[in-house]
Every structure is written in C-alpha cells, then in structure tokens.
Design a protein around this nucleic acid. Sequence first.
DNA 1: TCTGGGGTCCTAGGACCC
DNA 2: TCTGGGGTCCTAGGACCC
Length: 425
Amino acid sequence: MSNERIALVDVNNFYVSCERVFDPRLEGRPVVVLSNNDGCVVARSSEAKDLGIKTGTPWFQIQSQAAGWGLVARSSNYELYGDMSARVMEVVGRYGTWQDVYSIDESFLGLVGDPAQLQAAGRDIRAAVMRHVGVPVCVGVATTKTLAKFANRIAKQNPALGGVCALEAMPPEHVAAIQGRVPASGLWGVGGRTASRLKMMGIESIADLKAADPALIRKKFSVVLQRTVMELNGTECIPHAEERADKQQIMFSRSFSTPVTTVAEMEQVMTVYAQRGAAKLNEEGLRTSSMTVTAGTSRFAGGEGSFPAATIRFVTPTQDPIVLVRAAVAAMRQSAIPGASYLRAGVMFHGLEPLSAPATLDVFGTGEPGPDVGTVLGDVRSKFGSMAIGIGIGGFAVAPAWSMKRELASPRYTTEWKELPILRA
DNA sequence: TCTGGGGTCCTAGGACCC
DNA sequence: TCTGGGGTCCTAGGACCC
C-alpha cells in the first residue's frame, strides 16, 4: 500500500479570519459576516458561535442585541476573500504532491510520509499560512477524502491537537470511539434528509454507517452514499478535481434591497444581470447554448408567490452580451407578473462550450462574427473599473433603487489601489 | 420592513431512434 | 388478452456542499 495520504486543509471561519487580518481589533471579539444585502449570517467567529448565533440567522433578528453582546458585523467582501483565498491556496499547494481546490477556503492535498511525518507536515502548513497570509488553518490527514474531512473536524474540535489530526497517528480504538459517538449527519455528503432516512434503518452514528452493507446502501439510497461507506472503510472513490468535467453552468443571481414591482424595473434588472452573466462567460472563455432567467417573490410571505422562469435556446451558441440582454429582457417581459413584489432574480447559462470550439453551423446566417462585444466590455472594465461601461441601463452612473445593499463593508484591501490599508509606524 | 449565492452530481422519466 | 427490446440524449428535480 502506498504511503501517500490525503490532507484537507481549510481556514477556520474564513471570512471572519480575513476581516481580522486587516482589523486586529476584531481578535477575541464575536464577529459575523453577512450575506448580500446584509440579509443573514454566513460566517461566525468562535465567540459568535458561543453566543448561540447560527449560520443563516437573519441579521434583523439579532441586530438590536449586537451592541450588548459586543458583536461586530461586516457585509461580505468577496473581492477581499477571493484574493486572500488565492494566497492561501498558493502557500498550501507548495506542500502537496497534488492539490485539489475544493472551495474558497478548502483544498485537498497529497502528502507522503508515516503518521509522524504527516503530522509534522500539517504543522508546517499551518505555520506557513499564518506567516505568509495571516489566517489560521486546520489540517486533517487520512487515506480518503471523506476520512480527511472527518480528521479535519477532529482537529477543529480538539484544541489540544494544535490544529492537526493525522487519523493514523491516533489509537484505532480512540478513532472508533469517536465514530461511535458522532452522528452520521456530521459526515461530508450526508445531509439532513439522508440522515433521517438512515436513522429509520437504525443507522445513527458514523460507525453504524461504516459497518453498513454498501450494496444495500446503494439500493436504498444512491451511488453517492455507497461511496461514502466505502471511503469510511479506506477505499478511495472520489476523483480529484482535475479529472472532473469542465464547468457545466454559470449563474448570476441576486436579491434586491427593495422589491421590484414594475415590468420596466424588471427589464432593467435583466439588462444588468444578463450583462453580469455575460461578463462571467467572457472571463471563463465560454459561450452558451441555453439561458434560463428566473425571478421570485419572498419565500417567507404568505400566499402562492410568483416564481417565473423561462429558458431560451440559442441555435448558434453565443457569448454576446447584446444578444443575451435582448433575450433575457424579452423572456422575462413575458413571464413576470406586473404588480408582483419580486425580491430576487437570476440568469443561468447551460450547455457551455469553449470559445475555441468549432462554431455550430449557422443555418440562418445570423451569426456573422463581428467584433467581440464581450471582450471589448471586459477590457474596458478591467482598465477603468466595473461601472465604467455597460449596455442600456447597465451603463448607469447612479445605482438603481433595487441594487444591493452593503452597509457594513470593509475596504477591498488587497485588490483596489484606493483601498489599500494604511500603516502608521 | 428586513431571511444569500453559487455550484456539483445523480436519478427518473420522456422523447426519439432503429 | 395481447400490445418488442435496446439504446441515447435531454431535462427537471432532489440532495448535498460551502
């Protein structure tokens, strides 16, 4: 058996940790980061967790108690987090035989060595990320991705381990005892629905699931859960990211700060959202053969609500923002109900293909390639800023009433010259 | 008054083909 | 009472993840 193992490295409370790098006054205090429109809590410091604040808690429900708790809230600052993520991934990647970036704050890593060497590597990674980027990480090491996730969780929950847990360095009976105690729902890939169905079969703990018959699990659930069972028993079943397919869909979707009720406003929204989606296509070097536009009223209001959705297929796949904007506006004009109080909308692209792919036969002769508008817009924006140019209402100088609210935002410390942190010595 | 945004993978079922 | 078999492709929806 090879002694290559899999590490899962992730940043503790990533968004909060990013905020703390640039505002050390937040150290030791309860801190939360809010979703777009300052809607609900998406990240919490350990102190905020101790206050009993849950992920997803609406900000308006706890806002009035914040001062009494000494709780600090920040709007989410994805430019900052994205840039910090790239720095963390670069440092972590130096230590692996391979690296599979799984999310904004996690990556899997190939590590070679005996249990003691793996633990030492984990400690080196922690120290390097702290020194070079300034955020704390935890490291779990095991034989499969599912077990590495489990080990990482042990590292997080036991401060005595110093943020590193190599599963094979622990006594097996100790590991078994933990697996007997922790519910299966604590595993990667086992959500609430699956957990409650498992429970009805008498499978409650991780140990129960590990001992379950993989064939039976596949029959009653799916190949996904079967893989979890096999990974718990040390058989690798989850392929690395580079072996997985290319991106399948791209979406741009946002809720509004104030409801949209008129057709004219909804057309504005589609104009802007389709352009934002088109810009993503351009960044990825893709074109789309199918676009879905959606909108929705509040899920929390009573009554039926209105959730229009329309899909447009393009005979000739396109990345042209003018084509996409026109189609999105026309589709939504037919689907949205005038007077309904819409709180969100989105644009999704499917059937993606690289721009380098051979063009589909253009039967109707409409797709004569002119200057690539998307590329021109992208170039102008990267030089002069994201609001520098746009199509139609997308080129407004003043944000419309429905646009996003971020009242508690921190500066984009690392990606905007005008917002660099200032150091006084 | 105020409740996120973006993805992945799998499965079932229908359309269509020979 | 009988009314193929086998295959592909596509889509919608479910479940999960961070």
